[in-house]
Structure formats: structure tokens, C-alpha cells
Design a protein around this nucleic acid. Structure first.
Length: 282
DNA sequence: CTAGGATCCTGTCAGC
DNA sequence: TGCTGACAGGATCCTA
């Protein structure tokens, strides 16, 4: 469920507590959740944590990388002097590690642990060498980070998909990195655009506003520690508060639009639940 | 090439 | 209470 801001929040949190530590042992509780050879990362030190789109890259001192993708329900939990949880704020999940949904975990050389929980098993850890990274389809075909895009470039991208719904296009990681269901809806709301409009119909002012909206909405979320609702908790264990504080339409069906007072509605677009204001999105 | 739908999994919740 | 189907903050694979 984590989208770019949540993954970035996890990256920042983990950076503070696992960089410089050595992975002494990897425990694989679900084969599906771990790709590659665990022995290639055991005994190796974590030297850097990067993020590309919604993927986390743990760089090791032997030039190997662990790519972590949380997909829908993945969580990273660091259990040390302080406990870090990035996921289901379920009491039981926070309390005992490994827990019911722990799929993979690593022992670190200072006696602390890094856990990967993932209810639906869509996420994974993947051990990659330099060649794997250089040839990886997901990484290579990933679109630019939103703030790296210029308005003209964003518009050209939209116009390459002029017959597709705006929401489907911004959700596609090949076009722009990191946008997920929350921020797609919030970005469209910000820009006053109905999510199912065809990209080709957008005026220049609208596409500009959409990019501006995606950037500002995601930046605000990063600044507030990521969103939460049900499944996301910040690395320090506290819940992010983006949805409570800033979400205007996401999971707010039936509420009044904060901008025009009309009702927020929910429908389906691009195969996903889609929230919008019937009054001020055109 | 694009576009839409099924699919991977497991749990929760609404509606009989 | 118990069952059933819909749905879930993602991405890929398959088909047309």
C-alpha cells in the first residue's frame, strides 16, 4: 500500500538505524517473498538505502543490493532499542516478531532485527548484483520521479496516451514513478480534473496543475511522515497522519468537499476505487 | 504499440 | 451466526 511518500518515509527511518550494520543471518519464512540467494547478503554490511519510485534499495558492501518492494501490504519493521514499524498498526503485529505475517527477517550484528511482514505476499526482497540492477525491467522502465519532471515533459507523456483515462496513466509506473491510488485521486482533485478524463482532452493549464498537484500532495505527505489509515505506520512506530490531515477525497466518500461543499463520491476507474468531488472536478 | 481484464494472496467487511 | 461476494494505497501477464 505504500506509495512514494510512505516508502520515502521508511527509507529515511531505516537509514538512521540500519546503515552501518551487518546482516548476520537471513530467515526466509515464505519462499515466495524472497528472490535470490540469501548467502550473498549474509555477513555483509548495509552501506546505503536508496529509493526509486516505490522500491527500496538496500546497498551492501559487496556490491549486492536488496531490492524491497512492499506492493500492497508489505511492511518493514526494525526491532532494536526502539521499534520501528512500517505497516499494519495491529497490536499483535507490533508486539511479537516474527509474527503471523512475517515472511522474511534478518538478524543484524548488533543483536537487532529487520522484519518484512506482508499479509498478501505480493511484496518481496530480491537479492541483485550489479548486472541484475543494470538489466532489471522494473527499475529500467520506471518513469521519472514526479519532481524531476518538467511540465512540458509531463504533458508530452500524457499526450502519448491520449485515449486513456488520466488516472490509469499516472498510476502506470512506466510513465511517472511513485504515484499510487491515494495520490492519483488527490492529484486529480487538486487539479480539478475528473480521473476518467482522456489525457488528450486536458488543456495545458490542466496538465500543468496536475503535475503541480502530484508533487505538492506527495511532498506534503513526506513532510508529515507518510499517510496512514489502517496499514501504514512510520518507522518510529507512530502513525503517519497524511490522510487524516491532508487527504481531501481519498476514502472520504459521503463527506463534504472541503473546497466547494459538494458531496465526495466513489466510483471505479482504471480498475481501482476512485474518489472525487462531483462539484469541482470537471 | 495500446488498453482492459485477470491474476497473484489473505483478511475484513457488508449484505443476505 | 454463517456464508458469500466485493474489495483492498501494486504490478504483471495475457488477450484483443
Amino acid at each position: 500500500m505504500p506509495e512514494l511518500p510512505e516508502v520515502e518515509t521508511i527509507r529515511r527511518g531505516l537509514e538512521k538505524c540500519i546503515v552501518g550494520k551487518k546482516i548476520t543471518k537471513v530467515h526466509i519464512l515464505c519462499e515466495k517473498s524472497f528472490r535470490g540467494k540469501p548467502e550473498l547478503i549474509e555477513g555483509k554490511k548495509i552501506i546505503e538505502i536508496e529509493r526509486r519510485g516505490k522500491a527500496l534499495l538496500l546497498r551492501l558492501d559487496n556490491k549486492m543490493t536488496i531490492m524491497v518492494h512492499l506492493r500492497m501490504t508489505g511492511q518493514m519493521i526494525y526491532d532494536g532499542a526502539e521499534r520501528f514499524a512500517a505497516g499494519h498498526p495491529d497490536g499483535e503485529f507490533i508486539e511479537k516478531m516474527p509474527g503471523r505475517f512475517t515472511r522474511v527477517y534478518a538478524d543484524l550484528d548488533d543483536g537487532t532485527h529487520l522484519y518484512f511482514n506482508d499479509l498478501r505476499k505480493f511484496g518481496f526482497w530480491k537479492v541483485m548484483d550489479e548486472l541484475d540492477i543494470a538489466t532489471d525491467d522494473f527499475l529500467n522502465k520506471l518513469g521519472p520521479e514526479p519532481w524531476a519532471m518538467k511540465p512540458a515533459e509531463f504533458r508530452e507523456m500524457l499526450m502519448r496516451h491520449k485515449n486513456s483515462p488520466v488516472k490509469a496513466v499516472i498510476l502506470d509506473q512506466h510513465n511517472i514513478a511513485g504515484v499510487g491510488n491515494i495520490y492519483a485521486d488527490e492529484g486529480c482533485f487538486y487539479a480539478g480534473i475528473l480521473p476518467w478524463r482522456k489525457c488528450g482532452d486536458l488543456k495545458k493549464t490542466e496538465s500543468d496543475k496536475l503535475l503541480e498537484g502530484l508533487c505538492s500532495v506527495m511532498q506534503a505527505s513526506i513532510d508529515s511522515g507518510g499517510s496512514t489509515m489502517k496499514d501504514y505506520v512510520r518507522p518510529d512506530g507512530t502513525k503517519g497522519n497524511y490522510l487524516e490531515k491532508f487527504a481531501q477525497v481519498f476514502r472520504r466518500e459521503g463527506c463534504e468537499c472541503p473546497r466547494c461543499g459538494s458531496e465526495i463520491l466513489k466510483t471505479r476507474t482504471a480498475g481501482r476505487g476512485t474518489h472525487y468531488c462531483k462539484g469541482c472536478q470537471k
